[in-house]
Every structure is written in C-alpha cells, then in structure tokens.
C-alpha cells in the first residue's frame, strides 16, 4: 500500500503559484480559503527560496490529537482527512498545526469559524467516492479516479512532488545525487559541468 507524501523541492520552486490556483479551481474552494500556499523565504535577498506548502498528511497528526470532537482519520494511503459533519469549527487544529494547513471560511457572525477546510491530497472525504456530496464538501476525489493531486501534476518545474512516498524519495534522491547538495548546488559545476557528472536530469 502506498504512503502518500508531498515534497517541494526548494531549488526548483519558482513561486509561480500555479499549484495554489490549480487547487482552488479543481476543488472550487471559496473566497478566503487557500488549501495550498507558496511561502517565499528571504524574498529579494541572496539565498531566496520558495516552498509550496499545504497539509503534509502527518503520520502522527497534531490536528487529530487535539480535535475535541475527534473528526480526523487517516486513510489506508496515509492521507489525513476529516469529517465536516462532525467538525465544529473550534480552531484547535489551526493552533496545533505547524504548517498552517487548516482553514476556516468566515461563514458566521463576528468572525466565528465555519467548518474547517484543508488539503485532502485530492482524496475527498468520508462520503461515497466521487459523489456530488463529497465534491461539494471536500472537492474532487482524484485519487479515486487513479490520479495524483493536481497541484503536483500541474507544477511546471516539477518542484512539487506528490504521490507514493517511496517514488517521491527515489526521484528526489536522484536529483540530489546529480545536483550536489547544499553549497555546491549553485556552484561552478552547475554552470560549467564537472567531470564525471551527468548533466541530463532524468526526472
């Protein structure tokens, strides 16, 4: 059984925000909610990097630990999902999550939170797969259609990888091997080729 994971390659992300847009469009997400966002560190300075981030589908998810109504569950694919019928919009998952993944549409008075919304790894929710009900609450269930998350599929530079953890790490490991790591990544070798280093990136 696959263990689904996201990985964003900060050396490749160009902050085009296509993943954000693709996600919003695919799932018809309302105003004010963004299941995915691109964060740029050191914007305009040397060493600037961008990373696309959404729910990371943690193995020991903090949101699930603190939820007072216990609405989270993990699928066989390792995707962390939640039941919007049970969610009460208390915001505890938002306090606990390190990635700022849980989002709350402001549906009621005084900024009181509505039902939580977050990245589903394009895997829908507890309703029947690909049903209209599921689509309305959680967006499209691409996993049930045999497809991977759209954000990763859309990514022009293939910075964002999403899928089975083993495959994702294979791809990334290969990249790292050819690229060299850390300080060497943007050094002499990148520009002028180094002896014995293959230049054609297979992924």
């Amino acid at each position: 059984m696959a263990r689904m994971k996201f990985l964003c390659d900060a050396e490749r992300c160009i902050e085009c925000n296509a993943c954000v847009t693709a996600c919003k469009n695919e799932h018809e997400i309302p105003w004010g909610v963004n299941r995915r966002r691109v964060v740029t560190i050191k914007d305009g300075e040397p060493g600037e990097r961008s990373v696309s981030v959404a729910c990371m589908h943690c193995s020991d998810a903090p949101c699930a630990t603190v939820c007072p109504v216990d609405c989270f569950y993990t699928t066989d694919d390792g995707v962390v999902l939640h039941d919007k019928d049970i969610c009460i919009g208390c915001g505890y998952c938002f306090y606990a999550c390190p990635f700022g993944a849980p989002q709350f549409p402001a549906t009621s008075a005084f900024g009181s939170r509505g039902k939580m919304d977050k990245c589903t790894f394009c895997a829908g929710g507890p309703e029947e797969d690909s049903s209209a009900e599921e689509k309305r609450k959680y967006g499209r269930n691409r996993l049930a259609e045999g497809k991977l998350p759209l954000c990763a599929e859309m990514c022009a530079t293939k910075a964002l990888l999403g899928g089975d953890g083993d495959r994702v790490s294979d791809i990334f490991r290969e990249r790292i091997t050819y690229r060299g790591s850390a300080a060497m990544a943007w050094g002499w070798g990148v520009a002028y080729d180094k002896q014995g280093v293959k230049k054609s990136y297979s992924q």
């Binding site: 902050e15 925000n17 954000v20 004010g32 963004n34 966002r37 691109v38 964060v39 740029t40 560190i41 050191k42 914007d43 990373v51 981030v53 903090p62 306090y95 606990a96 999550c97 390190p98 990635f99 700022g100």
Partner: peptide, 21 residues
Amino acid sequence: GSSQVKGVDTGVLVDDNGKSW
C-alpha cells in the same frame, strides 16, 4: 517569509509552537 496568499500567518512556513500548545 512572504506569500502571495494573504491572511493571518500565511508568510510563516513552519511554526512549531503548536507542539507546546
């Protein structure tokens, strides 16, 4: 950091304070 997605704390990539909470 900064993000084109505007909102509360959206420019923060990872915040591990939630763990203490």
